[in-house]
Simulated scan of single mutants.
Amino acid sequence: MKMFNLKFFPKLGLFIYIFIYLISPKLAITQNTNVDIRRNLENALNTRNLKLIKNIFKEDENFKIQEQFKEIIKDFPNSTWQIKRLSVENSKEKIFNIKVNGNKIFNGDKYFLESNFKYLFSIQNDKIKNGKIKNLLTTIRNDQNKIDIIFRIPEKVLTGTKYDIDIILNEPLGDVIIAGGIISHLEDSHLKQEINIEPLASGGIFKTTRASSKPARQIWSGVISHPKGTISFTKSVEIVEKI
């Protein structure tokens, strides 16, 4: 059995942490002056403008956000953010679709980051309220997209119900030996656990789990090792009382 420690791999847990803080409910919006929060947030991230980020966030969060932002930029210096508004301008609930891409040479291999998620929020007294990240999927891979992989992990499930997690390699394996592992952890937490990497008898990771009895947001992180490369992933699942 092999141990896979993500703190020595590009920081999956850190990405979740950063995304949550960069678009947290403490992000200020001034509607009266027609400030475009989508554009300001996207510009601040893409230009590495710490001063603008400082102006966006409340004073008690500035230092923490800037330090964590510097860390993610250190991992992927050329990362880019794309933010699209999915909701109509006058809707009560606002929705952004956020996509992050980047790449980095790590131990001689080139790793590619891709992350997609939706951010839902409302506005009260010119500030974002009740911000929620949904349908997060982040991958970091060095296979040059040669591995045809499918992630079948639900976006939301009912409390107390069983659900399946399937990460499928959609190609004949033949004599190819693959290995992998997966763990779950709480939202907003750093991923400090080690992932047990074991040979996979089938073409991927297949797991059945049960949702918690109360609404929550569960984060699944894992890795698949293949002769063509390595793919690590993080996916969020929202546990709700009704769908």
Rank of each mutant, 00 (worst) to 15 (best):
L120E: 14
L173V: 05
P154L: 07
D109W: 07
I178V: 10
L169N: 03
N97F: 07
G203F: 11
I149L: 14
K214E: 14
L186M: 09
K235Y: 13
N142I: 07
I123T: 04
T139W: 02
L169H: 02
S213R: 09
A201Y: 11
F117H: 14
T209C: 13
I219Y: 01
V223K: 01
F151M: 06
I205A: 02
L200N: 03
I133Q: 09
G180M: 01
K132Q: 15
A179K: 09
I182H: 02
K92Y: 02
V223N: 02
K92E: 15
H226R: 00
K134G: 03
Q124T: 09
L113K: 03
S122E: 13
D126M: 03
S236I: 05
Q193V: 00
N145G: 00
S212M: 14
I123Q: 04
T138P: 03
K207C: 06
F112C: 08
I168Y: 12
D109L: 09
S184H: 09
A179S: 14
E114G: 00
N101M: 04
D164H: 04
L120G: 09
E155A: 12
T208L: 03
A216P: 00
I231K: 00
D143M: 03
F151T: 06
T209P: 12
I150C: 11
A179G: 07
G102R: 02
D143I: 03
R210V: 15
Y163R: 02
E194P: 01
N103T: 07
I168M: 01
E171W: 03
K156H: 12
K104S: 14
I140E: 07
L158R: 05
H226K: 00
I165N: 01
G180W: 02
G181K: 06
D166N: 15
L137A: 01
A216W: 11
G102C: 07
I197T: 12
E198W: 08
I153T: 11
H190F: 13
N101W: 04
K132L: 13
K214N: 08
R152D: 15
N130S: 15
N97L: 12
K99L: 13
I177V: 14
T234N: 09
K146E: 15
I95M: 06
I177P: 04
I224C: 03
I197M: 13
G222S: 10
S236L: 10
S202N: 10
I133H: 04
N101D: 10
D143E: 10
T208D: 07
I149S: 07
L120A: 13
K207R: 08
L137R: 08
R210F: 07
I205S: 02
F233P: 04
N107K: 06
Y119V: 02
K156E: 15
K156N: 14
P215K: 07
K127F: 14
D109H: 12
G203L: 04
Y119D: 08
R152T: 08
I197A: 11
